[in-house]
């Protein structure tokens, strides 16, 4: 524990700026993955244990597109759409066959998908790690705010993730599609009775969730190494976010992602040896005090 350092940081503007910006960026990237996970659970009632693999595939698709085109924008689009298509395929051909069966089946299908995708990327892209590197046009000097460093690329990441989050909130809250999706989450039978094809809704929601994971993978490809098996560590953190935020609650996922982001950025100063432990501690605390999570309404 180094609480005096934490105190020193909290009273220093430069430190506050740097750590806040770092926490926001980490948190928002995490939110993209976790929101997909929680969306899929909320509507389809499926825990996509293979969600981390979709994140990894997004990064690989982006890497491939960047290699061909040299454009980061195209890379992110390719990562997002590629993961979404893969998600669509997974939902249509694998998961839709086991709707209504118990969790064990979901677990096994997802486990199989993780095993297969890890090997597929190894066959296609090789077993060694890859890195995209920050594209030259985005490699600009960092912003210095109040003496604190905010890297240019982090600012872009934050802006893009914030736009995606806003679009998601608008799409779910204000559009007809969003209303149908929310209705389907509560009572799919009723939605079906109204003449809406729930099969299409399910497939679309899964594809969107997968696309969000893919987008996170693609966006972080320049600053994180892309490697087979990269999905697992992301998956665990996203799980923690969904549990803290409440499964199925996108707002809860946002709050939880930011809490974890700040725990990481400020925790590395105040309690560097307990950052991982702190995340689990927060989760345990939430589960004891409010088992349905921050944003959860239904009792578990």
């Amino acid at each position: 524990m180094d609480l005096t350092e934490l105190g020193g940081c909290l009273s220093s503007l430069s430190c506050m700026v740097t750590q806040t910006a770092a926490g926001l960026t980490i948190g928002m990237l995490l939110f993209l993955v976790a929101s997909g996970l929680t969306l899929i659970f909320g509507v389809l009632g499926i825990v996509n244990f293979a969600h981390g693999s979709l994140y990894m595939m997004g990064a690989y698709f982006a890497l491939a597109a960047y290699g061909v085109s040299g454009s980061f924008v195209l890379a992110v689009v390719a990562g997002t759409l590629g993961a979404a298509l893969l998600g669509l395929f997974m939902e249509r051909f694998l998961l839709s066959r086991i709707y209504g069966q118990d969790v064990l089946m979901q677990l096994l299908v997802c486990y199989a998908v993780i095993l297969i995708l890890d090997d597929v990327v190894k066959i296609v892209w090789g077993g060694d790690f890859r890195s995209m590197g920050v594209p030259d046009e985005l490699r600009l000097p960092p912003f210095i705010i109040g003496g604190g460093i905010v890297p240019y690329f982090y600012a872009i990441l934050f802006a893009v993730t914030a736009v995606i989050a806003a679009a998601l909130a608008w799409g779910m809250g204000r559009t007809r599609f969003g209303r149908i999706v929310r209705a389907a989450a509560i009572n799919p039978g009723m939605v079906g009775a109204l003449g809406i094809n729930t099969t299409v809704i399910y497939a679309a929601v899964f594809a969107i969730g997968a696309g969000l994971a893919g987008a996170a993978g693609a966006l972080s490809a320049p600053i994180r190494s892309v490697v087979p098996g990269a999905g697992v560590s992301i998956l665990i953190e996203s799980f923690i976010v969904t549990v803290i935020g409440g499964m199925g609650s996108i707002g809860g996922a946002l709050a939880a992602s930011l809490i974890l982001g700040f725990t990481r950025s400020f925790g590395s100063i105040g309690f560097p040896l307990f950052v991982e432990g702190a995340m689990f501690a927060i989760m345990a605390l939430v589960l004891i005090l409010r088992p349905s999570g921050l944003g959860g309404k239904r009792g578990s």
């Binding site: 940081c9 430190c15 740097t18 750590q19 770092a22 926490g23 960026t25 980490i26 990237l29 460093i149 982090y154 972080s220 600053i223 994180r224 990269a230 560590s233 992301i234 990481r264 950025s265 925790g267 590395s268 100063i269 560097p272 040896l273 950052v275 991982e276």
Partner: peptide, 21 residues
């Protein structure tokens, strides 16, 4: 000071800001 990211940690931002502080 020292900072210990876990093995295969996907992101090192917090360790880097710690070092830069």
């Amino acid at each position: 000071g020292e900072t210990w990211p876990r093995l295969f940690q996907p992101d090192y931002t917090e360790n880097i800001t710690r070092l830069s502080q």
